[in-house]
């Protein structure tokens, strides 16, 4: 899929079969290290540039984490999911319900929510091992719908259609009180995101990560290499669910509210859009996609609040027709300065 810069830059020269050089070539991260560092500097710096937009930044960090979790499943393992909101929602509800019932310490709540989502991910992963893309779509969609149905039915606990109010959190680590402006929230979410990226980064560079890409590329051959494809898919799906659950929990803890919307089909579709906007398979696609998505949403919603959905739809259609790969590469090239748009070679 689209990994800008991967493999493209080192194609020349006779390379000596020296272990050090090989290891270096092999461990080349999906993005150049400088780009990665730049992303994090921008992420932290954004707060100081627009501190009054911390709530928006917080939302972006959460959605970025959510989209990255989907990337593990889609970009690396090649599973198309239409129900990733299931894990986001599960995490959100677990974190929210814990807080409402008096367990308001953020980090244990976060962890519990992640583990709950991971458990659901683990159990449902066995459902997606067999069958076609269509079967998987249906199952992922179905699992999210079942959870939505459950959340709706057990409204004594979840607040049902009214939503879960009164999620009040203790200070993070007992030190940082949540404020109305989202300052603490942003740094809390950003820290969790950072840790998750570190973990994901390690995992995708590992033999396990290579195995996932092998399974996506050719399941038959992967099995013939001695890779237990089912076990790998279960593992990555569980990990992905865990991270999606963390994102949901962050959402619940920092917005102090959970509604059925966290499990909605729209959420699954939006996260898919974010990920493909930014590009799959290089880990930062979800983050970049989340930024683009949220910025677009904020801009368009200012103009036509009700019809935002129309523009998402249009974006999806155009994205696919133009070609996702080209689009996300262009996007990367366009971000710094807007040039080379309309004109260009008549091809």
């Amino acid at each position: 899929m689209s990994a800008p810069s991967r493999a493209a830059d080192q194609s020349s020269g006779a390379i000596p079969a020296d272990g050090g050089v090989l290891a270096h070539t092999l461990s080349r991260p999906p993005l150049p290290l400088a780009a990665e560092i730049a992303i994090w500097i921008v992420a932290v710096g954004a707060f100081f540039v627009v501190p009054d937009r911390a709530l928006l930044l917080n939302e972006i960090a959460i959605l970025g984490l959510f989209a990255m979790s989907l990337d593990l499943v889609l970009g690396y393992a090649g599973i198309v999911s239409l129900g990733h909101a299931a894990f986001f929602g599960a995490g959100a509800y677990v974190a929210g319900m814990l807080a409402v019932n008096g367990y308001a310490t953020p980090l244990p709540g976060l962890l519990a929510a992640g583990l709950a989502a991971a458990l659901i991910g683990f159990l449902s992963s066995f459902l997606i091992l067999r069958g076609s893309d269509l079967t998987r779509l249906m199952i992922t969609l179905g699992v999210a719908l079942i959870l939505l149905e459950i959340a709706n039915r057990f409204d004594d606990w979840t607040g049902g259609a009214d939503g879960l109010y009164g999620v009040a959190m203790d200070p993070v680590l007992g030190l940082f009180e949540f404020d109305l402006y989202g300052h603490t929230a942003y740094f809390y979410s950003l820290s969790v995101l950072f840790l998750c990226v570190l973990v994901a980064r390690l995992v995708i560079a590992s033999p396990f990560g290579l195995s996932l890409r092998a399974i996506r590329g050719n399941r038959l051959r992967a099995a013939h290499l001695g890779i237990g494809t089912s076990r790998h898919l279960v593992a990555v799906y569980t990990l992905s669910a865990f991270m999606a659950g963390l994102a949901g929990a962050l959402n619940a803890q920092t917005t102090q509210f959970v509604s059925l919307e966290v499990l909605d089909f729209h959420r699954s579709a939006d996260v898919l859009l974010m990920l493909v906007l930014g590009g799959t398979g290089y880990l930062y696609g979800g983050l970049i996609g989340a930024v683009v998505f949220k910025v677009l949403q904020t801009l368009i919603s200012d103009l036509t609040p009700q019809y935002w959905q129309f523009w998402i739809g249009l974006l999806l259609v155009v994205l696919v027709l133009v070609g996702r790969d080209r689009m996300s590469e262009r996007l990367g090239a366009l971000l710094p300065g807007r040039r080379r748009g309309v004109e260009g070679d008549p091809a």
């Binding site: 889609l74 198309v80 239409l82 893309d133 269509l134 779509l137 579709a269 898919l272 859009l273 493909v276 009700q306 019809y307 959905q309 129309f310 998402i312 739809g313 249009l314 974006l315 999806l316 259609v317 994205l319 696919v320 027709l321 996702r324």
Partner: peptide, 21 residues
């Protein structure tokens, strides 16, 4: 199939809002 899913979800969203409008 991913492309097809994205595309048709886009069509749904556009259809829904167009009809709402």
């Amino acid at each position: 199939h991913l492309d097809q899913v994205l595309f048709s979800v886009g069509i749904i969203f556009m259809a829904i809002t167009a009809v709402q409008y």
